[in-house]
Design a protein around this nucleic acid. Sequence first.
DNA 1: GTCGATAATAGTAATATTCCTTTGTACCGC
DNA 2: GCGGTACAAAGGAATATTACTATTATCGAC
Lengths: 146, 146
Amino acid sequence: MKPLNFHSAVRRLKERGLKLTPQRLEILRIVMEAGRPLTAREVMEAVRATYPHISVDTVYRNLTVLTQCGLVNQVNLQNRESTRFEYQGEDGHHHHFVCLACGKSFCVEWCPTATMHAVPAQDPGFRVLGHAFEVYGYCSQCRPAR
Amino acid sequence: MKPLNFHSAVRRLKERGLKLTPQRLEILRIVMEAGRPLTAREVMEAVRATYPHISVDTVYRNLTVLTQCGLVNQVNLQNRESTRFEYQGEDGHHHHFVCLACGKSFCVEWCPTATMHAVPAQDPGFRVLGHAFEVYGYCSQCRPAR
DNA sequence: GTCGATAATAGTAATATTCCTTTGTACCGC
DNA sequence: GCGGTACAAAGGAATATTACTATTATCGAC
């Protein structure tokens, strides 16, 4: 399962004229296999197992590059925690309920797929790659607080 | 128009037991009247006109507090730019098309309001305050690039 | 396989954001 | 109005993120 997705992800990188450096591929692999949103620090520590001298900028830059390819999503938790990066795959889905108090998140079952095919009126040529849908509020444990 | 919204926003702060400090109210006012997403730096520079000695942490902390009240939304641009903060008002809507290449954004006409009333299966007590819906891709100008 | 063009990396400097501690102040009760 | 209490602010230290530059490596053409 993993190799298949990895292959198509790499193809997408090539299609955009991006070079397939070993560091970049390792970062991609780590995010893909994590199965949960990782902080940049977590990614870096994981990469250092293989590339001890990788620079922080390389990690951040590649996470940005992968984001711009639609392979990775930058999760918006609406709090002061570090940004987290999550693999998106081909479909590019990402939906959550996020508690504004404790930061816990749950999956959103329903998905507004219809708009995937929509385009902004201001730019009919806009090419949709993916989308994010997040609902904010308070989970039952945090309801009475603040 | 502004005073009305401002009043209800302040009421929401009081309801949560938050103190109405002049710095906090000034930050709220600035974000409300901006009419566009501001960076923390922009907010701070604007506040300094009135409170020259305000600390950066105060600005960030209050933007987080306002976010946790559902009054402000932290815009997720999926790039390396600084996070931006935008007034959300009572309805808490926020929808955009975002170009992954140049960062330009357009409004999404359609809105998945239906899910506003949904709850996560894992936590039926979740209380929804607002939501964000963003579609990522490439605008017509950036299509051939990369 | 070698070469050249071009992009990516490492390392470091600069900036942005968060954390922490002390001091100040809003707000509740009297 | 006058404390007392708990939250908030300022200031500075620590961390996270981005910018920049010289060097290295990918990749396509031969």
